[in-house]
Design a protein around this nucleic acid. Structure first.
Ligand SMILES: [Mn+2]
Ligand SMILES: [Mn+2]
Ligand SMILES: [Zn+2]
Ligand SMILES: [Zn+2]
Lengths: 120, 120
DNA sequence: AAGCTAATAATAATAATTATCATTAAATAT
DNA sequence: ATATTTAATGATAATTATTATTATTAGCTT
């Protein structure tokens, strides 16, 4: 939690592993995965299943949108909130028999850095 | 394209492979992956990088929201459109230096089937 | 201290996807 | 039509993130 709380860049399990290793050199990657799973299940962190095949972890547990750079893979927070009422008006009859648990909004494209650098 | 066009359930590469095999029994999985990649790059289909670690393919190339069932893994289309103006109002100053390419909205929860069946 | 329980480290297994490369098919030139 | 070049494919290996396994360790309880 300490390590994750300092990160605003949605680190992967492996990145967190490397960071934690500085404190606890004998920790194993399995333990990092296991505890991240426990934390995400208890709701104290978010496990982001974004595009791009690797899972990332977020200390901000509020539902918020992300921007994923298709070039460098970075995930950035976007500075506005989201909620279900943005869709389908107030009549949420699309829910039908479903039980809605969460909503993830993800923009993709080039981040500011990569967009500037690719204008060659 | 024939096989994919008949599917409304966002099949995986492996599912498509099994289907295509009925027509072309000697086709390899690699060829399926390769051609799905080509098609998604040319824009004739969508490669969905949803949560859940496997990629799925969608003949509907318009930006539309999905619902992913966390129990059975199914992906369903939701019957309303999305566009950027739903977020952040009209002043899209959050874009800053970024180049926005696409937007994916994904709800998760229990699909109608799984929600009904789990009420034990 | 002895015994029980839960967490961990080390390692193996899994699964989706991608890469490689020899072979085959298609296209083009002779 | 036949030879030659080019592109696509099938078969298989490699990669990578994640999960499972299991013996060992550490923390409690009596
Ligand atoms: Mn975030
Ligand atoms: Mn769809
Ligand atoms: Zn970038
Ligand atoms: Zn379901």
């Amino acid at each position: 939690m300490q390590v994750l709380g300092e990160h605003i860049d949605h680190p992967s399990a492996d990145t967190i592993y490397e960071e934690v290793r500085k404190f606890l050199p004998r920790i194993s990657l399995g333990t990092v995965y296991r505890n991240l799973e426990i934390m995400s299940e208890s709701g104290s962190i978010l496990k982001l299943e974004t595009g791009g095949s690797i899972k990332r972890f977020d200390p901000n547990t509020h539902s918020h949108p992300h921007f994923r750079c298709v070039k460098c893979g970075s995930i950035e927070d976007l500075p506005f909130g989201i909620d279900s009422s943005m869709f389908a008006g107030t009549d949420e009859d699309w829910i039908k028999g479903r039980k809605v648990q969460s909503l993830h909004v993800e923009y993709t494209g080039l981040c500011a850095d990569c967009n500037g650098n690719t204008k060659s």
